[in-house]
């Protein structure tokens, strides 16, 4: 049953990316072009997501456990450390270069274009390198 929820959550998320047009890198690059031709849409996507998810988190967290699992399972890491900053800098640079972040990049595989495929493959190579070289524990 929780498998089905994973699939459904992914589908709903993917539909949200299409309707908000965040699947289109030009919309994302427009948001990041603050000093040129600015498109504020991405901020509205985040506001829309947060007005739903934020109160829901607070209500749901009061439950003893989730409906289909034995416990809530998320990181409570509060460390603001070098990894957080360095990683965010690298991510921000890649995001600004391509206009793609992981969600929209994976969703855009549906369009079967070579650009999305190249980006996603490289992104997975990046994930693997971090694991292989233990880059997230460097200090």
């Amino acid at each position: 049953m929780n498998r089905l929820i994973s699939l459904i959550s992914g589908i709903i998320f993917g539909i949200g990316l299409v309707i908000s047009q965040m699947i289109n890198p030009e919309k994302v690059l427009g948001f990041l072009d603050l000093f040129g031709n600015w498109d504020p849409s991405l901020a509205f996507v985040m506001i829309g997501a947060l007005i739903i998810s934020s109160p829901m988190f607070h209500i749901i967290k009061k439950r003893e456990k989730p409906v289909l699992a034995n416990e809530f399972n998320y990181s409570n890491n509060k460390n603001i450390n070098k990894q957080l900053i360095y990683g965010s800098v690298l991510f921000g640079a890649g995001w600004g270069l391509a206009g793609l972040c992981p969600g929209p990049a994976i969703s855009s595989l549906a369009l079967l274009n070579i650009y999305s495929i190249l980006f996603v493959v490289s992104m997975f190579v990046g994930f693997y390198l971090v694991k292989l070289l233990n880059l997230n524990s460097i200090r």
Partner: peptide
């Protein structure tokens, strides 16, 4: 330019529900 507030907000709300469903059922 190209500002699409309604579709952005609608899509965002849908994304918010996806996140909430995943948390409510799967934790």
């Amino acid at each position: 330019v190209n500002f699409t507030p309604y579709s952005a907000l609608t899509g965002g709300i849908i994304i918010g529900f996806a996140v909430a469903i995943f948390f409510y059922f799967n934790g």
